[in-house]
């Protein structure tokens, strides 16, 4: 009996020693949360698109860092582009947070499927050409995103559409112009002096 009494006391002591780790979830009005669910879903998957682009650029950076490729200027350009793409993903995440999203379903937003598809390029020009194509495909996806989010019959998401148009599309078009210009200069340099042209262009990128 005595032993049982002690047991109960110990149990009670343990019960009261339990830490309160979860705190109350406050009741917040939610009429301000007005994004359409399909639009949210598309933005969430575009986060993955940006991260995939990041990893693709990362593979380009890795390729041009190889001892038997040795184009540090190209490598620098692509590694920097990789981190920029990651920033784009984070910008979208922050936008969703600002609009009251991402209170749940966060854990499965980024999956383990980001390995890049292409990992080898025959020369610098072909990598820049791939980069330009990658950017064009991302631009297309952002345009589709815009269509989804403004085309909703009941809710045109003016603010998001403005953000995507003004911020993201501007960056896409400027980036594409930059890549196209680089490719043009490089191809002209390589017209009659292939190896030398690429070597010089690489040093200009440093």
């Amino acid at each position: 009996m005595k032993v049982f009494g002690i047991f109960v006391v110990v149990c009670l002591a343990f019960a009261s020693a339990r830490l309160t780790c979860e705190h109350k979830t406050p009741k917040i009005p939610d009429d301000w949360i007005d994004m359409s669910s399909i639009c949210v879903k598309r933005i969430r998957s575009h986060v993955t698109e940006e991260l995939k682009a990041a990893m693709q650029y990362m593979a380009m950076g890795a390729h041009f860092s190889k001892d038997v490729v040795n184009r540090p200027g190209f490598a620098k350009l692509f590694f920097e582009a990789a981190s920029e793409e990651r920033e784009h993903a984070i910008k979208l995440i922050h936008y969703l947070l600002m609009r009251g999203q991402l209170t749940s379903g966060v854990s499965d937003m980024i999956k383990r499927n980001l390995a890049p598809s292409t990992i080898i390029w025959s020369d610098g020009a072909s990598a820049i050409r791939d980069a330009l194509q990658l950017e064009a495909s991302v631009t297309k996806k952002i345009r589709e995103l815009i269509k989804t989010c403004e085309g909703e019959p009941t809710f045109n998401d003016y603010h998001l559409v403005d953000y995507l148009t003004g911020d993201f599309l501007t960056e896409q078009y400027e980036g594409q112009r930059d890549l196209a210009g680089k490719l043009s200069t490089l191809e002209k340099l390589m017209d009659s002096h292939g190896a030398l042209g690429e070597f010089l262009f690489d040093k200009k990128l440093l």
């Binding site: 984070i90 947070l97 991402l102 209170t103 966060v106």
Partner: peptide, 12 residues
């Protein structure tokens, strides 16, 4: 990044 994101929502 996901852990950080979760703490950035308006409820957390």
């Amino acid at each position: 990044l996901l852990m950080s994101t979760f703490y950035g929502n308006y409820i957390k």
